[in-house]
Design a protein around this nucleic acid. Structure first.
Length: 854
RNA sequence: GCCCGAGUGGCGAAAUGGUAGACGCAGGGGAUUCAAAAUCCCCCGGUAGCAAUACCGUGUCGGUUCGAGUCCGACCUCGGGCACCA
């Protein structure tokens, strides 16, 4: 029996593709282009099975588009800057650069055996000086175009490690390494003016018709447009009014206090003479600002002693409080509290004994409000009597608009549209990132580096010795020669900016760089014009907000600075977010009840359940869990390739679940795939192509083949790879049962080889060669179904009686309605149901169904 | 709290408003074999029945329709996202 040996054929065909340059992206104006891109990986060290799924999806598309006559760009690169490299350097003493490039080499070595049709000549890492030189040029262009500015912003400061911490490095208010209490420190940092684009980025979401609705919503919510009103509250002491922002001005009458941020100028001014308030503000500033911590934090406040007049009822004086829940960054840093209609305000009012006043009539009244606020629904009509505006019986939403108008007419406030989106802080006080190419000069101020001096390259050593990452602080800050440089403008002594860029900057334009990875400018406009936009972008939903929003902003900024054509401001034409690959967790407990995790190879199935092979202890099996090293349920793609070959791994990750859903990796499934591919191989290797057969069998096979072409193609085009694969299984079954002649069989197998080639490219080549196909399957044209073969001569129609299936009839494809009706009425099941009578109604849907209503 | 999804056999799932469960896994039976592996064939939602067949069945309850897994309304459960955002 012939056997499929992936370990032999897979390297063989990969070499053949290389030698033919099959996957080089060639700028060919005579062809339609297609740019397929998977989100590039972070070089953590090993690829995981989720990468395999991600890149296989892209590869299926890439190979399919190539076969349908497109010039395809399918590149790969590395998102290579970031904290893990520095952490590794701190932990084991190496250099982030060496660690990163070693990981890239390892992961490339793992990816190549998977046979992805990638143009490796375009590969780059974002930590290549050639790449970040161009990123620095973009920075300078953006800076000169006014898209970047500096301002003070608060960071998490670890006083022991003398470093800024990312939110994820702050654990319970303490630095993750030092354990020291984290301080809040204000630093002057660089920002992109992304919030200037809020409205545009929001409006353009409508045009992203090939993006998942879910992602579009998440982006819209993140931008967070709100319509509200700014209302000055006049101080009783005659000081400057305190301006509040509110999106619920309809609840204005119920305002009983003002809450201002601890950072509000009024708070700061009062704190100078009020030590108690100053202490409270200090306490608030130390608060953990991560969302989770803020949620748990108690709502606290301090009475400032100030009073303001209610804007509509000046006889009412409202106390002004400093609240730890009011953010200076949003709105005006001051809000009015309406305890009757807002739960948070009610909690606050109850805690500090503030008044509760109802703004309008709803079921219930202020006197009945206990601990639950009466929150008026926004869209439903409420019984609504505003005591000032006289607006009655409208929904809150309409009431809000009417109230804003009412206030504006009387000059009491101004309608304001606000966005939740804040400017993007790009400064990072770290070594392993793209240096920000500016110099701080005592006479000239902030001076951009001269373009001809780019890149500002990261120093590999610290003077004459290796960089010691175990010393607290950013090595760039203490570097003897790198930091101190002459001013590019006046030539006087100056200091280089030692902050580096957020790694999101690196990934915000790499897609454009792939179109001309070695250009001496960030992009080559001719190449960008040909290849952009990305026709299909594929990646995890975890990047649905930040990465995609930043990229959309960057594309606009690159257009404004002349690096991208105008039509590229939305760089991703279609987006697909794929599900995870999951795997069962095998768990037992140790003597003290702590969970112990086992790898699949440590457990086995016995009668009565799964047990630890060595001890026989029963194992709890948790199905479909996210893969993680600590749970020991990861699957190493290299192991799978070694055991079964790349084709099996590729086929399996595409076969079981729809691509947007999670798929569970099972060994049984992988083994079954391997067996199936062997079966297909034998069908071709052991076929007798000189055999004769009867014409009817040949015709039936040709029809099945045409059907299969249509169905597999539709599956690929519709991102339903699992259904394409199901159709290929079905066609295999048809083929192995068929008694068609040798030549018909050969045709069917050749078609199947090509239809399988996006999924199992190596096996496809092997089949293609065995079957005498010309050239390489990777370069062959996609099969086209003969339309004549798709038309069936006769059709089987199900016959329903009152909507329940009772039988079926077979008629020729162009049977008349009358003929069908006659046949139906003669059907025994129908006759039984009619019991001699006539049907009330007879519905014939040609080619579909017949329904008899009695 | 708000915003999105999703609920179909033992499991992963399929199904332009038109035969629910294609295809795969697991399971059962058989062939081949001294035996096994590999391979091949058959069965496989539930209940009743020797069978033909009948009834039930896509989270729950209603509605629209000749006909609903699919459309509409309410609810339940699970998953994801977001939020002291005023």
């Amino acid at each position: 029996m012939s056997r499929l040996t992936p370990s032999e054929i897979e390297p063989k065909w990969q070499r053949a593709w290389d030698e033919h340059g099959c996957f080089a992206a060639r700028h060919d104006p005579t062809k339609p282009k297609y740019y397929v891109l998977e989100m590039f990986p972070y070089p953590s060290g090993r690829i995981h099975i989720g990468h395999v799924r991600n890149y296989t999806m892209g590869d299926v598309i890439a190979r399919f588009k190539r076969a349908t006559g497109h010039a395809v760009l399918h590149p790969m690169g590395w998102d290579a800057f970031g904290m893990p490299a520095e952490n590794a350097a701190m932990a084991s003493g190496g250099h982030p650069k060496d660690w990163t490039y070693q990981n890239i080499a390892d992961m490339r070595g793992q990816m190549k055996p998977l046979g992805f049709s990638i143009d490796w000549s375009r590969e780059f890492a974002t930590c290549d000086p050639e790449y970040y030189a161009q990123q620095q040029r973009l920075f300078i262009d953006f800076l000169e175009a006014g898209l970047i500015y500096r301002k003070a912003a608060v960071v998490n400061w670890d006083p022991v490690d003398r470093t800024v911490l990312a939110n994820e490095q702050v654990i319970d208010g303490k630095g993750w390494r030092s354990g020291a209490a984290v301080e809040r420190r204000e630093l002057v940092q660089w920002f992109f003016r992304i919030s200037d684009f809020s409205e545009e980025l929001l409006e353009a979401i409508d045009g992203l018709s090939k993006w998942p609705e879910k992602v579009r919503l998440m982006q819209a919510n993140w931008i967070g447009k709100s319509r509200g009103i700014e209302i000055p509250f006049h101080r009783v002491d005659g000081g400057d009014p305190i301006v509040c922002y509110s999106t619920r001005p309809d609840t204005m009458r119920g305002a009983t206090f003002l809450a201002i941020s601890a950072e509000h100028p009024v708070s700061r001014a009062l704190a100078e003479t009020d030590p108690d308030l100053a202490a409270f503000i200090e306490e608030t500033r130390k608060m953990d600002t991560t969302e989770a911590a803020m949620e748990k934090a108690e709502k606290k406040g301090r009475d400032t002693g100030l009073k303001v007049r209610h804007p509509i009822d000046p006889t009412r004086e409202l106390p002004v409080w400093v609240g730890n829940f009011v953010l200076m960054e949003y709105g005006t840093g001051a809000v009015f509290g309406c305890p009757a209609h807002d739960q948070r305000d009610l909690d606050f009012a109850r805690r500090y004994g503030l008044d509760v006043v109802s703004a309008f009539r709803m079921p219930g009244d202020a006197s009945e409000i206990d601990d639950v606020a009466l929150v008026p629904p926004k869209t439903e009509i409420v019984s609504y009597v505003d005591h000032f505006t006289g607006i009655t019986e409208v929904s809150s939403e309409a009431g809000i608009d009417a109230t804003i108008d009412w206030f504006e007419e009387r000059n009491l406030g101004t309608g304001q549209v606000k966005y939740r989106l804040r400017d993007w802080g790009l400064s990072r006080q770290r070594y392993w990132g793209c240096p920000i190419p500016v110099v701080h000069c005592p006479t000239c101020g902030v001076v951009p580096e001269k373009r001809e001096n780019l890149p500002v390259e990261l120093p590999y050593d610290e003077g004459n010795k290796p960089i010691d990452f175990s010393i607290p602080g950013n090595p760039l800050d203490r570097h003897p020669t790198w930091r101190d440089v002459p001013c590019p403008k006046c030539g006087g002594p100056a200091k280089r900016e030692t902050d580096t860029m957020d790694t999101f900057v690196d990934s915000s334009w790499y897609y454009a760089r792939f179109t001309a990875p070695h250009a001496e400018t960030p992009t080559d406009l001719a190449e960008a014009d040909y290849w952009m936009n990305v026709d299909q972008y594929i990646g995890g939903v975890e990047h649905a907000i930040l990465h995609l929003l930043y990229s959309r902003f960057f594309a606009r900024a690159m257009h404004l600075t002349g690096h991208l054509p105008a039509r590229c401001i939305e760089p991703f034409e279609a987006l697909f977010t794929q599900g995870m690959v999951t795997h069962a967790i095998f768990q037992t407990c140790d003597s003290s009840g702590r969970p112990v995790f086992h790898t699949p190879s440590e457990v086995e199935e016995r009668e009565g359940g799964v047990v630890v092979a060595a001890t026989g202890d029963p194992v709890e099996v948790i199905p479909s869990a996210k893969m993680s090293k600590s749970k020991r349920n990861t699957v190493d793609p290299t192991d799978i390739v070694n055991r079964f070959g790349a084709d099996t791994a590729r086929w399996f990750v595409m076969s079981d679940s729809p691509p947007e859903r999670d798929v569970e990796w099972t060994d049984a499934g992988a083994e079954a795939t391997y067996k199936h591919l062997g079966r297909v191989y034998r069908l071709a290797a052991e076929a007798d192509f000189s055999a004769t057969g009867d014409a009817a069998e040949d015709d039936a096979l040709a029809r099945a083949q045409a059907r299969c072409i249509t169905d597999v193609t539709a599956g690929i085009e519709g991102f339903a790879f699992n259904t394409s694969i199901a159709k290929l299984y079905a066609f295999t079954n048809t083929l192995s049962k068929s008694r068609a002649s040798g030549p018909a069989r050969r045709e069917a197998l050749k078609t199947m080889a090509l239809l399988m080639s996006p999924f199992t490219p190596h096996l496809a080549e092997e089949l293609w060669e065995t079957l005498g196909g010309a050239g390489l399957a990777a370069e062959a044209a996609w099969p086209v179904a003969d339309p004549a073969l798709l038309v069936e001569e006769s059709v089987t129609l199900p016959v329903q009686v009152n909507g329940k299936r009772r039988g079926e009839i077979t008629v020729s494809k162009d049977a008349s309605k009358d003929a069908i009706e006659a046949l139906v009425l003669d059907d025994p099941a129908v006759r039984r149901a009619l019991d001699g009578g006539t049907p009330k109604k007879l519905i014939v849907v040609p080619g579909r169904i017949v329904n008899v209503v009695v």
